[in-house]
Structure formats: structure tokens, C-alpha cells
């Protein structure tokens, strides 16, 4: 899957690496800003509600 994406990026190896890093950064940003905040309430292992009741 990743090899397929890498092969289909335009440009030489250097530019492909640069584009790959941009893609990775975009995915991590999306996870941090939108995905993780939404799923966090369902994974209350660490965060959890610290109130009683």
C-alpha cells in the first residue's frame, strides 16, 4: 500500500520523500485535531472523568 503510493508520487526520489513527509504530517495533524478528540471519550483508559458521582 505504502510502496504503491510512493511509486505514484511525481518527481524524483528526493521530491517523493518530501511529499511523503507532507502526507504523514497531514495525517498526524488530522488525527490530533479531529480524530483523537472524537474517540477519546470511548477510550477512557488515561483521561477519564476525575469527578465522583
Amino acid at each position: 500500500m505504502y510502496a504503491w503510493i510512493f511509486r505514484h508520487l511525481p518527481g524524483n526520489t528526493f521530491w517523493r520523500v518530501v511529499q511523503s513527509l507532507v502526507l504523514v504530517a497531514a495525517v498526524v495533524t488530522a488525527l490530533f485535531l479531529w480524530v483523537f478528540p472524537v474517540i477519546a471519550p470511548y477510550l477512557e483508559l488515561l483521561g477519564g472523568d476525575p469527578a465522583v458521582g
Binding site: V28, L31, F32, F36, I39, A40, L43, L46, G47
Partner: peptide, 10 residues
């Protein structure tokens, strides 16, 4: 990454 997000980014 989720652990990093929860322990650091939050």
C-alpha cells in the same frame, strides 16, 4: 500516536 496525543498534546 494516540497515547502521545493524550499524554502530551491535550
Amino acid at each position: 500516536l494516540f497515547v502521545v496525543w493524550q499524554l502530551w498534546w491535550t
